[in-house]
């Protein structure tokens, strides 16, 4: 596979990152009133406001501000979170593992449930089963994730009281296996929420429509004409081609997964970036919010790049560009 493709895409990263950074800059400066006061937030002390003003250069003219800002970005200096007293970047980075612990298993669960369901629905069409599956997907997709999460919590944690209602651990002094089990118990509801509302409907609909579209192609008829049975036609031809479009929207998918995680964490008080975001909103800790945005935006861009490269490996039509 051509490495020039990879190189080109990597180079394209730069303007994308730049764009994200400029975007945040614009937003900060659009805040009505004194930007440093706005950024510092309602509850900040005067000293903090001064600190922010100096760091971001709000006492300087705009063009200088942009340069200072970019400089700060590059050195990873967004200022301190006034609430935690340590650099905003540090506060955020500490919470990343918890979010990953939530997101990855959810993605896996979504694929494990969604993909086969989508395939099943596609192969059984037209039938009531297919219609039922697709309709379910629609409904799940339409329920707001936080509503579903709250409902699960109300049913399982409040009324039935069989699962914990929030947080990541209940037994503070447990270690090893016990600790793992504790975390797992706390993980169940948030993971189910994220997977069922964000992941499963996405994959079901995606897989379903991809297979339906591919089945209309002529090479599927050729495959049948050769004498392959339906199963083989599907496995060897329909499926491989159907998976290609799935990979192309991976970028958007990841982005919405992160958004879903934000709400889920908030509802279940799961100590990841999402709930940090929520808390920061309440506390008006804007430097933290800013960094979360920049971090997630950049992560999504990178992940989408990786999936593009993987896609290019899979689709022979792209490989030799």
């Amino acid at each position: 596979m051509s490495s020039s493709y990879v190189r080109r895409r990597l180079i394209q990263l730069v303007p994308s990152f730049f764009l994200v950074i400029v975007l945040t800059f614009v937003i900060i400066n659009l805040a009505p009133g004194d930007p440093s006061a706005a950024l510092a937030g309602e509850f900040a002390s005067p000293e903090y406001v001064v600190e922010i003003r100096k760091l971001y250069g709000f006492d300087r003219p705009v063009h200088e501000r942009l340069l200072i800002y970019i400089g700060n970005m590059l050195t990873g200096n967004l200022g301190r979170s006034y609430f935690y007293g340590v650099p905003a970047t540090q506060v955020v980075i500490e919470r990343i593992p918890a979010t990953l612990l939530l997101v990855f298993p959810s993605i896996v669960l979504s694929i494990v449930i969604g993909l086969p369901l989508g395939i099943f629905a596609a192969r059984k069409r037209p039938s009531r089963t297919t219609a039922a599956i697709v309709f379910q997907a629609y409904i799940l997709f339409s329920i707001p994730i936080f509503v579903f999460g709250l409902l699960l919590m109300i049913i399982f944690a409040v009324y039935l009281a069989i699962l914990p209602s929030g947080g990541m651990i209940s037994q503070f002094y447990a270690t090893g296996l016990e600790r793992a089990a504790d975390v797992l118990r706390h993980l169940v509801l948030p993971m189910l929420t994220l997977a069922l509302i964000w992941g499963v409907p996405q994959f079901v609909r995606l897989t379903y429509s991809a297979i339906v579209e591919v089945s209309k192609e002529e090479f599927i008829t050729t495959a049948r004409a050769i004498g392959l049975d339906e199963g083989a036609v599907f496995r060897r031809h329909a499926f491989r081609n159907a998976m290609l479009p799935v990979a192309t929207i991976a970028g958007i998918w990841i982005s919405s997964a992160i958004t879903g995680a934000v709400f889920t964490e908030t509802v279940f008080s799961w100590p990841g970036i999402g709930s940090l975001l929520f808390d920061s909103i309440l506390l008006r800790d804007y430097t933290v919010i800013m960094f979360i945005f920049i971090l997630t935006a950049i992560s999504v861009i990178i992940v989408s790049l990786i999936t593009d490269i993987i896609y290019a490996r899979l689709d022979p039509r792209i490989r030799l560009r």
């Binding site: 192609e217 002529e218 090479f219 495959a223 004409a225 050769i226 004498g227 031809h237 491989r240 081609n241």
Partner: peptide, 21 residues
Amino acid sequence: KIRWKQISIVFQNAMNALDPV
């Protein structure tokens, strides 16, 4: 068993009739 072995078919649009992967 009969398909292809006894009777085969050549389609019009080979670009679409051949699996691109």
